[in-house]
Design a protein around this nucleic acid. Structure first.
Length: 420
DNA sequence: TCTGGGGTCCTAGGACCC
DNA sequence: TCTGGGGTCCTAGGACCC
């Protein structure tokens, strides 16, 4: 059995946990740079505000006080997520964390009813201890658990827990689920399927496998099987991540190469820190820069290139210097850039790196490791007090708009005290 | 004027090999 | 002048997810 725990309107619920006055009001949370809507309360959904609506389209509602807007506050969301996940981890033998606000509990050896009871207790506990409402969907496969979760959220009668283990209930759920709401069927495939007369999950499973294969490839077949109770997504590799990306849009476009370089150096430095915190090193350092795709009146450019290191690295100096040399090959002075990013990939555990291969100086490496370690210690989380000359002072996210951010209530004592 | 960030997997096509 | 069949690896782009 899988039980999918999914936080309701997670970012909004985190804001409400420390600002109870937001309860019952229409609230949205914006993406980085205050770009567009990434989370909505039920009240703002009811107003017809869609996911990914750019802020400037709802600014009127915000200014008039009809809609409450918050910038995203990842320090807060990440911390509350950690608390929720630790409650879940202590409740079941096996937990697969899927995203910041979702996790699959993997359970065997108990009955469906016992599972439902246990889930109800977990919902209550998280609400009481963390202050965030969650819903739980129970089924034999992850795709079905998603559907069950959807019902648990949608109908208050379920009190946050819905199971579709029972075959009759499952069939009814499939008939009531629009094809576009099925996990794994994206917005591109949904209309294609609708054109073939497939409107619900139930219509989809009634098609033959060969037809699904032809229309949607192997991933479609997996979804088709999952909906019928065949567990195809069970492999839970708790591997290291395969790539790490740090990127930001800029509040202001820039055409200046040195400005761009200092930002790319920052992103590279952040990637290096993420690698070190996971005790991994990367072979490949990639950089991308792009213009503002919404400006039809301006020339567009979007380019990416990467460089493979002979010896995988995680020191700030090495990753930054690689990223900057890639940037030099990408940069074109005739454009104005809106976004840049660094992606490190071909990641391996740092234990496997041998010092002196390919004539690499082991002594140099050791010095760099020590320096990186020291930088991590001094810099703590996010700040850039000790940095390379090529990096900008301050935080790598500076120059990103965040006009409506709430306090870092649960992680920053100084910010919390400011409100008292 | 203002439009996010961070991931994974699959596929098609090119380069290269025998 | 003719120009197969089978394989691997890499990359770019598409699609999906949160």
């Amino acid at each position: 059995m899988y039980a999918l725990v999914d936080c309701n309107n997670f970012f909004v619920s985190c804001e409400r946990a420390f600002q109870p006055e937001l309860e019952g009001k229409p609230v949205v949370v914006l993406s980085n740079n205050d770009g567009c809507v990434v989370a909505r309360s039920n009240e703002s959904k009811a107003m017809g505000i869609k996911m990914c609506t750019p802020y400037f389209r709802i600014k009127g509602l915000s200014d008039s006080g009809t809609l409450i807007v918050r910038s995203s506050n990842y320090a807060l969301y990440g911390d509350l997520s950690k608390r929720i996940m630790s409650i879940l981890a202590s409740s079941v033998p096996k937990l697969e964390i899927y995203s910041i606000d979702e996790a699959f509990m993997v359970i065997s050896g108990i009955t469906e009813n016992e599972m439902i009871d246990m889930s109800g207790e977990i919902v209550g506990k998280i609400r009481k201890w963390v202050g965030v409402p969650v819903s739980i969907g129970i089924a034999e496969t992850k795709t079905l658990a998603k559907i069950a979760n959807h019902f648990a959220k949608k109908y208050p009668g379920y009190h946050g827990v819905c199971s579709v283990i029972d075959e009759k209930k499952r069939d009814r759920a499939l008939a009531l689920t629009g094809i576009g709401d099925v996990w794994g069927i994206g917005w591109r495939n949904a209309p294609k399927l609708a054109a073939c007369g497939i409107m619900t999950a139930s219509d989809f499973v009634s098609r033959p496998e060969a037809w699904v294969k032809r229309k949607m490839g192997v991933t479609g077949v997996r979804t088709w099987l999952e909906l019928q109770g065949h567990d195809c997504l069970k492999e839970n590799k708790i591997e290291k991540r395969k790539s790490i990306c740090t990127s930001r849009s800029f509040a202001e476009m820039t055409g200046d190469e040195e400005e761009l370089a200092s930002r790319v150096a920052d992103f590279a430095g952040m990637c290096a820190r993420k690698l070190r915190s996971e005790h991994t090193v990367a072979y490949t350092v990639g950089v991308f820069i792009r213009t503002n795709r919404f400006r039809d009146d301006m020339e567009q450019y979007d380019s990416m290139a990467s460089l493979r290191l002979e010896v995988p690295a995680n020191s700030t100096q090495e990753i930054v210097s690689a990223a900057l040399s890639v940037l030099r090959t990408l940069y074109r002075p005739e454009y104005k850039y809106k976004k840049a990013g660094v992606i490190v990939s071909d990641i391996v555990s740092d234990g496997v790196v041998q010092g002196a291969i390919f004539g690499f100086d082991a002594g140099t490496r050791e010095k760099e490791d020590k320096l990186s370690e020291l930088m991590d210690k001094i810099n703590g989380s996010g700040t850039n007090i000790l940095r390379l000359a090529s990096q900008r002072p301050g935080h790598y996210s500076d120059g990103v708009r965040s006009e409506f951010r709430s306090k870092r209530f649960s992680t920053d004592w100084n910010e919390l005290m400011e409100i008292h």
